[in-house]
Computed example of a mutant assay.
Amino acid sequence: MNAIVISSARVAKLAFKDNDLAIANRPILGLEKHSYNGNDITFSKYNETWRELRKLSVIHLFSVKQVASFYPIRRDQLTGSHVELDSWKNYEELEERRFDKVFKECQELAGAFYFGDHFPLLGWIDKLNGMKSRIDNNFRILDYFYQGLIDEHLDPNRPESMRGDILDLLIKLKQDQAAAVPLKWENIKGILMNVFIAGTDTSSSTLVWALLIKHPQAMKKAQEEVRNIVGTKGTVDEVDIQSLPYLKAIIKETLRLFPPVPLSLPKETIDKCTIDGYEIPAKTTVYMNTHAIGLDPEYWENPTEFMPDRFLNSTIDYKGHDYGLLPFGTAEEDAPE
């Protein structure tokens, strides 16, 4: 299997902006079952199904209006004497279902090395060393979990709290046949996998890094900013975040130095293309070293230093348009059409 690793902002732009259509596929490495054979958003092939799933996610699931509607849930989860930053689900529910360990194992399996992915003739080693058995067992438990959630939402007597959540919306889209490409239960389970596995631990790990900063001056400046905005109110609401530029700068700097996934999920070339003068064959796996890109000395001044001020009065953001800061991938590789 051919593979390349992109480790600079300049080459990342050449690859994902100038050759975005040629590097549009995503290979399913290791966790093919967990993606329901590419029926999710993350591992779907670049086709009409992927475009429709992305469109549905942007318009119906993760729109500004929809995310704002979940504010009461986020507020309730943050109410209490303390917050466990690396626990991203209701602890009692996970303890009862005993799925906390299962989700963590899935994340470990997603980052593991599989001989069959890189050397097809050596795929038998994955069976011999127990990796295939671990994948099968982990998938079986998670599939049971997803099916349980679906059954609960299909119950006409389901709790009011389930109405209007992400799964409820997906089921409604399927039942109403509102998608250009009819949704299957495999699509819905695949999207649940994306939400639970890809959209949780990455966020909490970033928060942990941000709050463990050993830079008292930066911490003091952030605390003063929060106190000035919040005043005597006592709590910080989500609307207050827009008025906290230094706190947002700390988050950007944390994502630059400590991206949630140092080596991004791989992409795969559909067609032959040229990157930085090198001809890249079709079916080449393309990795992006987001950690190295965040430390690129050609893009950043004093790249190894923690300097949140670099983002003040700067338009650089982490949404995928600035190729020196790509903690969540590029806008081109994940943008819906």
Rank of each mutant, 00 (worst) to 15 (best):
I141F: 07
E333P: 00
E96R: 15
D168F: 03
Y36M: 03
D143T: 11
L21Y: 04
C106N: 09
L154D: 10
L325F: 11
S7Q: 11
A335I: 14
S81V: 15
P159F: 07
F99H: 08
V181E: 05
D86N: 15
Y144H: 13
L255C: 06
E301Y: 06
Q147L: 07
S204D: 13
E32V: 08
T330E: 02
F103R: 05
L212Y: 07
E333N: 05
G123S: 11
N90E: 14
G234W: 13
A222Y: 00
L109A: 07
A222V: 03
V208A: 14
I250W: 07
E96I: 15
V102M: 11
T206N: 08
V67T: 15
W185E: 12
C106T: 12
S243K: 15
F115S: 02
N90Q: 10
K33W: 02
D201N: 14
D317H: 03
L56K: 01
F99N: 06
E225M: 08
I73T: 12
F196R: 06
A112W: 07
S87W: 11
S264R: 02
L122P: 00
P159M: 05
N228A: 15
L56A: 04
N289H: 05
K272T: 14
R26V: 05
K174D: 01
Y71W: 06
L142C: 13
L14W: 05
Y323N: 00
E48K: 07
A112T: 11
Y287F: 14
D86H: 14
L94R: 10
Y278R: 13
E333F: 03
G123E: 03
T200M: 10
L29K: 00
A12E: 08
P182E: 10
K220S: 13
D100P: 03
E238Y: 12
W50K: 05
V181C: 01
G320W: 01
G130T: 14
D155V: 06
D155K: 06
G123L: 06
L211W: 09
V102A: 08
T49E: 12
Y144E: 15
I293V: 13
L122E: 01
N138A: 08
W124I: 09
K104Q: 12
F70D: 02
R158Y: 00
P159L: 06
T274R: 10
